[in-house]
Design a protein around this nucleic acid. Structure first.
Length: 293
DNA sequence: GAAACTGCCGATTGGAGACT
DNA sequence: AGTCTCCAATCGGCAGTTTC
């Protein structure tokens, strides 16, 4: 995952010139199906790097270099039409070197998608201020998992039935000592592999929180599990998977969670990001057998 | 014929390591 | 500690090729 720092924010690109409904229709007519798919991906994930867009929509080119050029040209076209904009500077590549651009929807792009009737939830006015580095890194990390899942699905490892992002995947429940608590997974995923359907809560770890806080979050999942709400809804409790950026962190979190006594460890897993597709393909055996809440 | 794709090449950028 | 050099990765311009 690229490390990205912002030096400035093209806030003016978020608003851009006024575009009439007729102009918007003309722009829509000039777009290919793939252009629309790229826009929809950016809208769904809020921010995507050029690299991620390439993997999502330009994977069928003969060489990766050709895919990159096609990606860049498609994005340049969308940017030229005022539909997307990239953050001003890209710093920090996959190894050394400069990193990918980070793209987001402009207000015109948002209006265009809302005009299709499939993105009514997009805001009419977009944030004009600079996103924080923490927010951006988290958003891109979640997007990275979504891209990896798409690639694995494309490779025939499993089928994604449902993928919900924040806040659609959040769960509100009654806390033990009264009041309403909220569970905030990064992703909710339903997959099939063979004849089994698996449900997952995914938490994207970026080594920014101490293991003690991860353990507390697990305890919150355990409290929610004991309400029986998920079991009532879908018949099972989803597996809770922490996705870590490196193997050392993976081992650390596994160790802390394993030492926590008041958890039903059948429902919790920690996995290094690259191993997530394998875990999903194999399944975690998280199906509650009826002795639960 | 137009649009999309591809190959080539140079410019740009930051990370890593060597050097002072 | 600061500077310099090399290297890897990305982007974009141009021109040729392919596809519809």
């Amino acid at each position: 995952m690229a490390v990205i720092f912002l030096t400035s924010w093209e806030g003016q690109a978020m608003s851009g010139p006024r575009v009439s409904r007729g102009q918007l229709r003309a722009i829509r007519d000039s777009l290919s199906d793939r252009d629309m798919e790229v826009l929809e991906s950016i809208a769904t994930n809020r921010f995507l790097t050029s690299h991620q867009i390439r993997r999502l929509h330009f994977a069928d080119h003969t060489t990766s270099a050709a895919a990159i050029r096609s990606t860049n040209r498609a994005l340049a076209k969308l940017a030229g039409l005022g539909l997307v904009a990239h953050l001003d500077r890209r710093i920090g590549g996959v190894r050394s070197g400069s990193g990918s651009h980070v793209w987001t929807l402009t207000e015109v792009g948002s209006r265009l998608l809302r005009s299709t009737g499939e993105f009514d939830e997009l805001p009419a006015r977009l944030r004009a201020h600079e996103p924080t580095l923490t927010f951006l890194e988290h958003t891109l990390a979640v997007a990275e998992v979504c891209v990896a899942l798409t690639e694995a699905e494309r490779g025939g490892e499993f089928t994604v039935i449902e993928l919900l992002r924040e806040p659609e995947c959040w769960r509100a429940y009654s806390a033990r000592h009264g009041g309403v608590a909220q569970l905030k997974p990064d992703l909710y995923l339903v997959t099939t592999s063979g004849e089994y359907e698996d449900h997952w809560f995914l938490e994207i770890d970026r080594c920014t929180e101490p293991p003690s806080r991860i353990v507390r979050a697990c305890q919150k999942y355990e409290s929610y599990r004991q309400t029986g709400a998920e079991r009532k809804r879908i018949g099972i409790f989803p597996a809770v998977v922490w996705v870590t950026p490196d193997a050392k962190r993976c081992a650390t979190l596994r160790s802390h969670i394993a030492r926590t006594p008041d958890l039903d460890h059948r429902f919790f897993a920690v996995v290094y990001a690259t191993d997530l597709p394998s875990l999903i393909k194999a399944g975690i055996g998280s199906q509650e057998t009826g002795d639960g809440a």
